[in-house]
C-alpha cells in the first residue's frame, strides 16, 4: 500500500509568489488526514502537487515507490483521485458520463472517445452512484444538480477511479452546513470501508477536529503543527491562523473563541 512522501518540497509560482517553503511529511496509507490553515497558506498547492496538477520547484513527492513527474502522470492520477471545491464537473454531460470520466485512465482512447464503455465500467458507475445516493439523477445534466449533489458526483467520479488515495481540496467550502456534514461523513466512510487514504484541505477547525486522525496545520507555506486532533490546543490554533506581522490580533481571538 502506498504512502505519500513529501520530501523538502517548495513551490514558487512564475509571478514570484512562494506558496510552499520546504514541506516534509509522510502520510500513512489508510489514514484520514486534514490539512488545516487560513486561505493562502499553501494547502491547495500542496494537494495539487500530489496529483501532479502542479510541479514542485524543488524537492519531490512519491506515491509508494513512484515519484510524481511528467512521464507517469496518467498512472499516478489513475491511483490518486481528486475532489475540488468547485466540483469541476463537465456541466453539459450527464451525471453518469461524469462518473465514467473516472474510468478514462484505465482505458485506451479508442472506445472512450466515442463514449463507449465496457460493461464492467458501467457496473462500477452504477455502484458508486448508488453509494452517493444519486441513482435517480443518473441521466440529469450535471449543472442541474444542487451544490451538495454535484459534490457527491465529484466523489462518485473519484470512487469510479478505484484509487488508492483521494485528495479533497476544500470539498465543503462552497456548501451549506448540512451538505458539508454529508460530504465529510461520506469521505470518512470511504476511508473506513475501502481503506482509501484520504487527505482533506479544510479551513473549518470544528470539522477538522471531528473527522481527522491527524491534522497538519499550515501557515504561509510552512507546516506549523502536525499531530492528533486532541493535541490541537488554543495556542496551536493561534500559530496556525496567525497573520504575518500581527502579534496581537483581536479578530483572531474572537474567531478562535467560537471555533
Amino acid at each position: 500500500m502506498p504512502t505519500i512522501s513529501i520530501r523538502s518540497v517548495s513551490k514558487r509560482f512564475s509571478n514570484g509568489f512562494e506558496a510552499l517553503k520546504g514541506i516534509d511529511a509522510e502520510i500513512r496509507s489508510g489514514s484520514f488526514t486534514v490539512v488545516l490553515g487560513p486561505s493562502g497558506a499553501g494547502k491547495s498547492t500542496l494537494l495539487r502537487l500530489v496529483n501532479g496538477l502542479e510541479t514542485p520547484t524543488t524537492g519531490e513527492i512519491c506515491i509508494g515507490d513512484e515519484t510524481v513527474n511528467g512521464r507517469n502522470l496518467r498512472h499516478i492520477r489513475s491511483r490518486v483521485a481528486m475532489i475540488f471545491q468547485q466540483f469541476n464537473l463537465v456541466d453539459r454531460l450527464s451525471v453518469v458520463t461524469n462518473v465514467l470520466t473516472g474510468r478514462l485512465a484505465h482505458r485506451s482512447w479508442i472506445g472512450s472517445v466515442f463514449y463507449l464503455f465496457r460493461k464492467e465500467d458501467i457496473d462500477i458507475a452504477q455502484e458508486v452512484l448508488s453509494r452517493v445516493a444519486l441513482t435517480d439523477k443518473a441521466w440529469s445534466r450535471a449543472d442541474k444538480l444542487s451544490g451538495g449533489q454535484q459534490q457527491r458526483v465529484g466523489i462518485a467520479r473519484a470512487l469510479a477511479q478505484q484509487p488508492k488515495v483521494i485528495l479533497a481540496d476544500e470539498p465543503v467550502a462552497s456548501l451549506d452546513p448540512i451538505s458539508s456534514e454529508e460530504i465529510m461523513i461520506l469521505l470518512r466512510e470511504i476511508r473506513d470501508q475501502d481503506g482509501i487514504t484520504v487527505v482533506v484541505n479544510l479551513h473549518q477547525v470544528e470539522l477538522a477536529r471531528r473527522f481527522a486522525d491527524r491534522i497538519i496545520g499550515m501557515n504561509s507555506g510552512k507546516i506549523v503543527f502536525d499531530g492528533k486532533p486532541e493535541h490541537m490546543t488554543p495556542s496551536v490554533l493561534r500559530t496556525i491562523y496567525q497573520r504575518e506581522g500581527i502579534e496581537d490580533d483581536p479578530s483572531l481571538d474572537m474567531a478562535l473563541a467560537y471555533a
Partner: peptide, 27 residues
Amino acid sequence: QSVCEGVAATGANFPQRVMYAGWPSIL
C-alpha cells in the same frame, strides 16, 4: 480551466480530455 482540470485529474489523456472536457462544453 476548472472543468479541464477536473477531467485531467482523473488521468485522462489528450484525446480523452478533448472529448470529455472540450467538445461537450462548446457543442
